[in-house]
Design a protein around this nucleic acid. Structure first.
Lengths: 214, 214
DNA sequence: TTGATTTAATTAACGGTGTTAAGTAAATTT
DNA sequence: AAATTTACTTAACACCGTTAATTAAATCAA
């Protein structure tokens, strides 16, 4: 009964084709402008065909969100070879920030928009958010390693992990939503150059805090 | 020539009525569900009338965003009487977090969504983001005060202000977008109770860091 | 192999959205 | 009293996500 398998394979191929088209539109025009109709036109099928493969638009949003985590994992995989945990924490932060700068639309989908999480909640309530947990667990381990090396000892691991995540996410999201841009213009009258290295330098300040109370 | 003034006053009244209707819908149904047509129905006028008073929907978004900053200022005004700058910094952070919890939809409009900033950029490129700068300046002054009292001295004021903002914003936005919810469930297996006090406790960890290197 | 049935894709349609152009009635000015 | 400006409406454009009904193709059973 290899026919069922062939169909299943074809189905997966088709889902991938739809996702590829969605990704293309999404990267160039953003999520809002990526309509079901446009995706359908891209793969030269009728709009309703999409619904035979994806439940609704949030389903596609979640698939793209996963795609984004794939990209992120690619970058983070290199960090496994950084032995010193505090160096690894630094590198993770910088990598996270650089990812947000390089792929702002993916970052938005992964950490700012509600749709993907809503999809998870609505259609797979018992399932975990695998992508997020994977990254967060890596962070937790690194924090644990830092503590073993005498950094911020006596601080709860989980809280330090969440704090570190919040720092970089706060920076990245305020950057992407262009909130920083509108206050940086007026306030940092002295160092206008900083604009593009602003995220790095504020994250640097956080690292200094951590370093000082070793 | 009091007639011109009367008209101007009427116009302002009308704008306020539209905004009130928009606010009502926005608070109950959220931004996406607040359509121009529904706002029009609420005030019993034709949809196109709205456009005689607001340029487009992002204009209304920005007006609501300002409305939100009004609410925030209300809360923050009490903090002016906290003399000790580090206590004030603590209180500001807690107030900010509590605001995000109490008014998640407003918080979203003020700090997460792109629309209001886009409106500012598109229609008033030379104007400043007054609301944001006001709050940020208060923060800068408080940070300056902390430094004068020996806290995180030798750290640049601007960077410390941005870091502090990033910490609380990171926490609040990951909370509102329900990203925390999906990792907290599995990871904090020990302390499930924390869920609602999670933001407070992570912010507490940040404060501890600051306190330790006084 | 032929007829029945499942599968895959389509067309048509529903009920919305933001926004603009054209038209109308009332208020104001000349 | 006529001309003009103002305030507002109706009609329409070009979209959107999604569902129901329908047709064409592939598969299965006899």
């Amino acid at each position: 009964m290899g026919i069922k398998e062939r169909k299943e394979r074809h189905r997966e191929d088709f889902k991938a084709r739809i996702l590829q088209a969605a990704k293309k539109l999404f990267v160039t025009d953003g999520y809002e402008a990526t309509s079901i109709r446009k995706i359908a036109a891209e793969i030269e099928f009728s709009p309703t065909t999409i619904y035979l493969y994806y439940k609704d638009k949030t389903d596609i949003a979640y698939a793209l969100h996963q795609e984004g985590f794939g990209l992120m994992r690619e970058r983070f995989s290199a960090l496994a070879y950084v032995d010193d945990p505090f160096e690894r924490l630094k590198a993770m932060g910088r990598g996270y920030i650089q990812f947000a700068i390089d792929h702002p639309d993916f970052y938005e989908l992964m950490f700012i928009m509600k749709e993907p999480m809503q999809y998870l909640q609505a259609h797979h309530p018992e399932d975990e958010w695998e992508e997020g947990e994977q990254v967060f667990n890596t962070l937790m381990q690194t924090v644990e390693g830092c503590k073993a090396h005498g950094y911020f000892s006596s601080m709860p691991t989980e809280e330090m992990a969440m704090l570190s995540w919040s720092v970089v996410h706060g920076l990245c999201s305020l950057h992407i939503t262009s909130h920083f841009k509108h206050i940086a213009e007026k306030c940092s009258d002295i160092e206008l150059v900083k604009q593009d290295t602003l995220l790095e330098s504020v994250f640097g300040a956080y690292l200094q805090l951590l370093e000082r109370l070793k």
